[in-house]
C-alpha cells in the first residue's frame, strides 16, 4: 500500500519536478541550491508536502562540496515523506532559508547554523540556539574535537 502510494507520488513529481529516487520507503531528491526555494514551494503548494519535519546537515570533509543540507518534508494528506539534499561548498556554505514557507524552519536553521556554520539567506535570526554566545566553532563538523570544551565559568579545580 505504501509502495503504491510512493510510486504514484513519484509519477506526479516526475512530471512536475524531476526524477525522484526511492530509497528505503522514502522519496529522495537532489536539489541544486539555486532552485531549492522554488522546489520546496512547488512541493508545498501543488503536491501537498505541507509539514516541514527536519533540516539538518552532514559533513563530508574529504569531498567538495563539503556539506549536504538535508530537508525532510511530510505530506499530511498522502502520508508520505520526501528527503531533499542540497550540496553546499565550504567556501560559501549559503543556502536559501525556508522561513517564508514554513515557520518551523527557523529553529531548525538556527541549529544547523550553530552546528555546521551553514548560512541561511533570508533567516534574519541566526543566533546560537543549542550553543551559547561566545562559542567559537561548529561542533558537529568533523574537524571539531569532541572534547574541546569552552567553559563559561572558571573552574574551581
Amino acid at each position: 500500500m505504501l509502495t503504491a502510494a510512493l510510486e504514484a507520488m513519484r509519477e506526479r513529481l516526475r512530471g512536475g519536478i524531476g526524477e525522484v529516487a526511492l530509497v528505503r520507503g522514502m522519496l529522495v531528491l537532489d536539489v541544486e541550491p539555486a532552485v531549492l526555494l522554488r522546489t520546496v514551494g512547488d512541493l508545498k503548494a501543488e503536491h501537498g508536502f505541507d509539514l516541514l519535519l527536519d533540516i539538518t546537515a552532514i559533513d563530508w570533509p574529504g569531498r567538495t562540496p563539503r556539506f549536504d543540507v538535508v530537508y525532510h518534508l511530510y505530506s499530511t494528506r498522502h502520508f508520505l515523506r520526501i528527503r531533499l539534499k542540497v550540496r553546499v561548498p565550504e567556501s560559501d556554505p549559503t543556502v536559501d532559508s525556508l522561513a517564508t514557507l514554513f515557520g518551523a524552519a527557523r529553529f531548525h536553521e538556527r541549529e544547523c547554523h550553530d552546528m555546521y556554520g551553514i548560512v541561511f539567506r533570508g533567516n534574519g535570526d541566526l543566533r546560537p540556539i543549542l550553543l551559547y554566545e561566545g562559542f567559537d566553532g561548529h561542533p558537529l563538523r568533523k574537524d571539531y574535537a569532541k572534547q574541546d570544551e569552552q567553559p563559561l565559568v572558571r573552574y574551581r579545580r
Binding site: 571539531y144 574535537a145 569532541k146 579545580r157
Partner: peptide, 10 residues
C-alpha cells in the same frame, strides 16, 4: 564532550 560540565564540583 564539548557541552557538558564534567561534574558540578568544578
Amino acid at each position: 564532550n564539548y557541552a557538558a560540565v564534567a561534574g558540578i564540583d568544578r
